[in-house]
C-alpha cells in the first residue's frame, strides 16, 4: 500500500514496526569516567545507532521513493536530532538521568568530566522533563521522530531539476501523512478539541529545542574531534563531516 492511501492508524502501525531494536553499548565501563573514555563510549554507541537509523528510515512508508540525494541529505541533516529524541524517550521515566542505553546510563553530574558537555546534558534533561510533563505517548514519539527526519532540510535546499522537484513534492506529501498520523494519535487521548490543538502545538514546538541542542552537540563533537579527545571514524565521521563542511 502507498502511504497516501493508508489510514493514519495504518501509517502509525508501520512506523511503530520500523522502530529500531534496543541497543546495548556492550563495553566494560570503567568508572569514574575520563573525558576520553566517556566520549569514546558516546561515539561508539552513536555509531551503532546510526547503522540502525538507516534501516529505520528505509522502513518509513514512502522514504525510499524519494531521490537518493534527498534520502542522503535528510539523514545527514537530522541524525543527531534523531539520536537525541531517542535518548529523551528512553530517559523520560528517569528524572535527572540520561539513559543512553540499558547498559550506559549517566547522571547529570557525570557530565562534568567532559568539557562543555554539561550544558548539553542540561538542555537534554530539560527537554526530557518537558516531554514528561506532557506525558508523551509512544505513538506521538514515533510520529515526531519521522517528522524530524522529513522536515530536516526543507528550508535549506531548493529543488532545481524536474527530478528534484518531484522528490520534493513526494517529501511534502509524506510530511502530510506524518502530520495526519500525529493528529490522529493525539485525537485518541480523549482531550477536548482545543486541548488537542494545544498539544499538537506544544509537541511540535519542542522540535525546535531539539534542533538547537543538536546543533550544540554537533559543534561539541567536532571540537572534541579537532582536539583529538576522541577518534571519530566510519559512519559517524561521514555524518559529522557532512555538517562541518557546509554540505
Amino acid at each position: 500500500t502507498h502511504h497516501s492511501s493508508m489510514s493514519p492508524e495504518e501509517f502509525i502501525s508501520r512506523i511503530m514496526e520500523a522502530e529500531p531494536p534496543e541497543i546495548y553499548l556492550m563495553e566494560d565501563l570503567k568508572k569514574p569516567f575520563t573525558q576520553a573514555s566517556m566520549m569514546m563510549s558516546l561515539t561508539n554507541l552513536a555509531d551503532k545507532e546510526l547503522v540502525l537509523m538507516i534501516s529505520w528510515a528505509k522502513k518509513i512508508p514512502g522514504f525510499v521513493e524519494l531521490s537518493l540525494a534527498d534520502q542522503i541529505h535528510l539523514l545527514k541533516c537530522c541524525w543527531l536530532e534523531i539520536l537525541m529524541l531517542g535518548l529523551i524517550w528512553r530517559s523520560v521515566d528517569h528524572p535527572g538521568k540520561l539513559i543512553f542505553s540499558p547498559d550506559f546510563k549517566l547522571n547529570r553530574e557525570e557530565g562534568q568530566c567532559v568539557e562543555g558537555i554539561m550544558e548539553i546534558f542540561d538542555m537534554l534533561l530539560a527537554a526530557t522533563s518537558r516531554f514528561r510533563e506532557l506525558k508523551l505517548q509512544r505513538e506521538e514519539y514515533v510520529c515526531l521522530k519521522a517528522m524530524i527526519l522529513l522536515n530536516s532540510n526543507l528550508c535549506t535546499s531548493s529543488p532545481q531539476t524536474a527530478e528534484e522537484l518531484e522528490s520534493r513534492n513526494k517529501l511534502l506529501r509524506l510530511l502530510d501523512s506524518v502530520i495526519d498520523a500525529l493528529v490522529w494519535a493525539i485525537s485518541k487521548l480523549g482531550l477536548s478539541t482545543q486541548q488537542q490543538t494545544l498539544r499538537l502545538g506544544h509537541l511540535t514546538m519542542l522540535l525546535s529545542h531539539i534542533r538547537h541542542v543538536s546543533n550544540k552537540g554537533m559543534d561539541h563533537l567536532s571540537t572534541m574531534k579537532r582536539k583529538n579527545v576522541v577518534l571519530v571514524y566510519d559512519l559517524l565521521l561521514e555524518m559529522l563531516d557532512a555538517n562541518m563542511t557546509g554540505g
Binding site: V51, I54, Q71, I72, L235, E238, M239
Partner: peptide, 13 residues
Amino acid sequence: HTKLLQLLTTKPE
C-alpha cells in the same frame, strides 16, 4: 562508495 550510500542502497534483509 560512502557507508551511508552503501547502507541506503542495500536491500533489506
